[in-house]
Design a protein around this nucleic acid. Structure first.
Lengths: 158, 158
DNA sequence: TGCAACTATATTGTGTGCAATTTAATTGTG
DNA sequence: CACAATTAAATTGCACACAATATAGTTGCA
């Protein structure tokens, strides 16, 4: 009743042939993909004020809550790997927001530490969540439900 | 009661200071962004079988329903611009799936026409929507609600 | 009709995402 | 203790997204 309920062959065949599953209009994933792109676009003017991209802002969120975290643990939180994070963190280092230090015990590990400028930026970011909330113009309950479904979907397909 | 309900200053201040809005765990947008990335990853092994990326697959969906569409109209449907679509369509042309013809009436317009191989690929893609539906392991109703909220969000922030 | 405004596409440059591979350091095991 | 297996980052290569700009081609209107 839970796992396979969605994969009943008869249901699936009916859906594919009669409701046009190969139409863009019927693709949940496309809606999610488009909404995610739109979110990054909507953040842009807001984040321009503090000279961050959206992924850079996410990395800063992690650091503001976990100063000194290493690349692997940041990657676990952000669902991103070193191929994405290493150059991103180098750019934030160039901006003077953080330092990338080798771990004292384990030379393989790269610890990411906020600079004073990096810590200070948190104050300027204080209003961003509410600004974006207002941009969405969606009821809080609907956003909460959206987050719950996205989190569930992520855990299922990862 | 509708537009500004979310932006009440007192509510917002409370939320920011007391519930930690600058925490990754409380970011709806981050969940959406991560789920969208995960979707592209989940499509990869499925689409490898027909040698398409996820954005290329979306472009093919548009073409299978609108053969001969131009770049601008495809961009409207996909919420993507020529900066993204021109190189993507060139890659699909190189694969032999489509032709890029100049419009007969208007030389500025680029019409995209499926080749025989491009049309034939639709048969091989027939099962993909259901395969992905099964991967998600989410009830149909929840996916429908997810799509509705994403579509609403997209229209609000665009 | 001339030509400025507009439109469709293409190009350039920057920053992701991510698979695959490489490099260097650490750990487990005989 | 040697050394294969493992691990953390970094690197490489490719394909997006998208802002900004460039290039043609078309249209409107004085």
């Amino acid at each position: 009743m839970t796992d396979m309920q969605a994969c009943d062959a008869t249901k699936a065949d009916l859906a594919a042939t009669e409701t046009g599953e190969l139409l863009l209009q019927n693709q949940v994933c496309f809606s999610l993909y488009s909404a995610a792109n739109a979110i990054v676009r909507a953040y842009r003017p807001v984040l321009d004020a503090i000279d961050l991209t959206y992924p850079q802002y996410l990395a800063m969120l992690v650091l503001w809550a976990n100063d000194g975290i290493n690349v692997k643990d940041m990657g676990t939180q952000l669902h991103l790997d070193s191929g994405t994070l290493t150059p991103l963190l180098k750019r934030l280092e160039t901006k003077g927001l953080l330092d990338r230090r080798r771990g004292a015990n384990d030379e393989r590990v790269r610890e990411i530490w906020l600079t004073q400028a990096g810590k200070k930026l948190k104050e300027q970011a204080r209003d961003i969540p509410n600004t974006m909330f207002c941009k969405s113009e969606l009821p809080l309950e609907e956003l909460i439900a959206l987050k719950a479904t996205c989190d569930k979907l992520l855990s299922k397909i990862t």
